[in-house]
Every structure is written in C-alpha cells, then in structure tokens.
Amino acid sequence: MEIYQDIILDHYRNPRNFKAIPSCPCHGEAKNPTCGDRLAIDVSVKDGVIDDIGFQGVGCAISQAAASLLTEHVKGKSVTWALALGPKDVLGLLGVTLSPTRMKCALLSLETLKKAIKKR
C-alpha cells in the first residue's frame, strides 16, 4: 500500500496547529533516535479540556503529519480522553498501515502529547 496518501502529504505540507504556545506549562518533547525526528507539543488545558494545542518539530512526513492530525483530533476534547488514545487511534488518523520502524515515527506525536499533558 502506498503510504504517502493525500491526507498525509496535505498535513505534511500544511501542518495544522504548528505553533508554540508561549509560557505554556504543559510542554512535552520527544525524539526518535533512528531518524532524528524531534517534536515539541504545548497543551493549554481549561477545566480538564484541551482548549488549545500547538506542535513544532522537524522530521519525516509520517511524524509531522501524525502530529498535525493528532493535534486536530484532541483539540476540544478532555485530557482524560486524550490520555486514553492508543497506537490504533493514530494509525486510524493516518489511514495507512505502517512497518514497525515507521510506527515509531507515527507514535512520536502521541508520546509527546502525553508527556505534555502529564506536566499538568
């Protein structure tokens, strides 16, 4: 299966929520050592709900598109709901199957998001 579907290329070229939230206490960072991808996510939480979110990073299309899709997905949702997300949910957003190595690229965003939320 061709993994570079339009949705992935679209989010890679035009990432949503690509920003830092200044002086945000919920800040998470993670790195994928095999490919050098780096992500940082800021989460703004009000009354247990993610009311704003921003990510920044450098990396491959999979890691950056997954981060963009994930930030859209969790915006407006509760942190409890976001913390319960798993690998299958990220794959569902991407709409492709990935090899174990590329799964690490896709899941970097989820790891970073959870790190950020747990700073709360």
């Binding site: 570079y4 490919c35 491959c60 999979i62 590329r102 690229c105």
Partner: peptide
C-alpha cells in the same frame, strides 16, 4: 526527508 526517501526507495 531522508526517512521518507528511504521509504519510497524501499518500496
């Protein structure tokens, strides 16, 4: 990105 290049070539 190098990782994407490797993926396309790998296929």
């Amino acid at each position: 990105h190098p990782h994407d290049l490797a993926q396309v070539l790998g296929e």
